[in-house]
Design a protein around this nucleic acid. Sequence first.
DNA 1: ATCCAGGATGTAT
DNA 2: ATACATCATGGA
Length: 283
Amino acid sequence: MEKHEIETENFDLELTLTCGQTFCWNRINGDLYGEGPSKFYTFRKGRLLIVEQKDGLIVAETDLPRQEVIEALSLHHDLEEIYSTFPEDEKLEEAREELEGLRIIQDEFFPCLISYLCSPQMQIPRIKQMHNNIAEEYGGTIEYQGEELVRFPNMEELGGASEEELRDLGLGYRAKYVSNTIDILKEEGLSISSEYLDAREDLKKLYGVGDKVADCVLLFSLEFLEAYPLDTWALKSAEKHYSFLHSDDYEEASENLREYFGPYSGYAQEYLFHAARKGIIEV
DNA sequence: ATCCAGGATGTAT
DNA sequence: ATACATCATGGA
């Protein structure tokens, strides 16, 4: 594998990978959400990508081209430019200061989609557990310095799994979401509009994909940075701190929040979501 | 035991 | 359009 060194500013690898936005990365030699060295891996295009941070330097080991590493970690995002589009907002600035270096990263479409199909009514560590169960059962492993690294399967590989088998991995009723969605993808394919609102409707053609899951996939994989996923945390937070934007109707609340936070609303959502979860701002 | 977790679907109104 | 039950599973 080649080694790439990439200088970064305003990037916290540990925070970015462990905040709950991605289920596609693992910690080497430890639990992603637990203790262990700040060294992580994922697979992209079937190839291993290992990353660690040494101060302002990102060191990557991979056979992937350098540009792929940059895109995987969203190192091409200009955070100052993004921040400059935010409204003057006390809660957001508070969250942003506490979460310095948190970026929204871009995972591969298929593993991202599958993990968010598993997300309804489920806690974040358990979604990660399901993701890894699927990887261990249907993907492959590569040995790296004595440790078995798990690779998430592609659509063809996971397509062989029955609903019953997926259920046995702990997916519960979400097993049907995964197996039906893979059937749809294999039989009909899916074209996704470049327009945000249309893209969300496109994704909702998949079984088990509603507004929230669609927004997550759009934000965390397809780089629609205006997407504002409205999960229970975001809703509680919006209800408390942004009651003038809140609505019980998803589309109405979404529209209000996106109007308020601007073209990079997804970044605002991520800071507020994580701040709420960590208790930085009360919910 | 009862409740709840990054919600979505099916059905009845 | 809107309301409501239902959907698995495990941990608190």
